[in-house]
């Protein structure tokens, strides 16, 4: 997987999927349309100030609450390259993996990286480098099965292989 590089937007802990994409927009399924409302109830300026390739660094339990897959979809649709957090709520975690959106777990990265820093992530090495401060952080490794899903490009590709094999 290619290295990711972008500017950091930083948020606190327990960011729930309602503030990422409020219920009033949950009937939208078109990614471009969803992108317009990303972070609407957390930081309405986010979509105006961010640039594609930027990286979100947030506190623990990121993506808690509703199972809405439009939450990671809307973040992905803005062009955000990845989310780094000490931990992810479990449904957000599996949604991100299933749709092939990169997420990285690191407590240190959240503690040390500042908003506006330039960060580079090497997904294969699990390394998060803060180019502004020169510090490097290691992200936790994903379980083998999860890595397999990510390498295939999402859960649906796994399903296709199963269907093709007739098992």
């Amino acid at each position: 997987m290619n290295k990711l590089r972008g500017r950091v937007w930083k948020y606190g802990p327990d960011i729930n999927t309602d503030v990422i994409i409020p219920g009033r927009y949950c009937h939208i399924t078109e990614p471009k349309e969803l992108a317009k409302y990303c972070m609407a109830d957390l930081d309405p300026e986010f979509v105006n100030k961010m640039s594609p390739g930027d990286i979100i660094v947030a506190g623990g339990n990121f993506g808690c609450g509703s199972s809405r897959e439009v939450a990671p979809l809307s973040i992905k649709a803005t062009g955000t390259a990845a989310v780094v957090a000490p931990s992810f709520a479990r449904i957000f975690y599996r949604n991100a993996i299933n749709i092939g959106f990169p997420i990285f777990e690191s407590t240190e990265a959240y503690d040390r990286i500042n908003e506006g820093d330039e960060v580079e992530i090497d997904p294969d090495a699990g390394e998060i480098r803060d180019l502004t401060t020169g510090e490097t952080f290691k992200s936790g490794a994903f379980p083998e099965f999860v890595q397999e899903i990510m390498a295939k490009g999402g859960l649906s590709r796994y399903a296709e292989e199963r269907l093709a094999a007739g098992v």
Binding site: I91, I99, S156
Partner: peptide, 27 residues
């Protein structure tokens, strides 16, 4: 996410996303 409700009946029940739902329809 509130699919967890059915645990009241001694079932294993958990919330998932839409891709999970679609894949479980398929396989």
């Amino acid at each position: 996410s509130h699919t967890t409700t059915y645990g009241a009946l001694g079932a294993f029940a958990t919330g998932v996303g839409s891709t999970d739902v679609a894949v479980a329809w398929a396989i």
